[in-house]
Amino acid sequence: MQGLANPARFMRLSKVVQPWLALASVLLIGVGLYFALFGSPADYQQGQTVRIMYVHVPSAWLGMVGYTTMALASAVGLIWKHPLADLVAKAAAPIGASFTFLCLATGSLWGKPMWGTWWAWDARLTSMLILLFLYLGYMALQSAFDDPGRGARAAAILALAGFINVPIIKFSVDWWKTLHQPASLMKMSGPTLPPSMLTPLLLMVAGFTCFFVVVLLLRVRAEIIASKIRAIRLTQIHGSHESPLADRLAG
């Protein structure tokens, strides 16, 4: 982890890892899609709508992984004041927000035929909607300051305070037994899905996770370059590089 904290080393390493992760993502999602659409049975209760699960569950997973990444990076940024941590948190936010949106949208498309409604104020659905709002609040706050450092700090505090929502989402189906079905994958007693459904689901979750990391690395690289550009512009304005942060980022 210490080695990764150096932006130049991070850039080099991410360039090596990225193509392999991209390849893994394409293969896993490709095979996963085949099983999700052709090679798996319809559910005895839910019929063909169960196929929505294979995109809904990975989206929900990444919505929460994205927030956890953002909160962890925010904590590192706040405590150790490392500039790369702030950039990781900033890069993770739009990706996590996109998947949270997809989770809600695909869930809605699944809920209409199965529950008879597009939306219900069920605990799981409501906490997931709050997650989306936390992402949007984070992104708005972080870009509301002229000084990116101050924006990152303010947004990091929001990210950490909002992290309480992640376990609430996870356990909402056990604490409030309302509409959404309970966990069938991440259970202490092991998954309850039959292998014919578990295989495509795990393939899709793995493939989507690789995709998440690929996009995260792309966005962190873009953020590092933006910081370098800012650092160079600062030195142009001031004539010499007095800022230790600028020096660290430009190096």
């Binding site: 063909q48 709508t49 929505i52 995109v55 809904h56 739009p94 997809l102 498309l109 699944w110 035929p113």
Partner: peptide
Amino acid sequence: EMGGYARFVWPAYGLVGLVTVGLL
């Protein structure tokens, strides 16, 4: 036809494809 649920299943997959490709 997706067992009569085509108008729910395909938009779900389409939306996920659209948003992920757009993100990339």
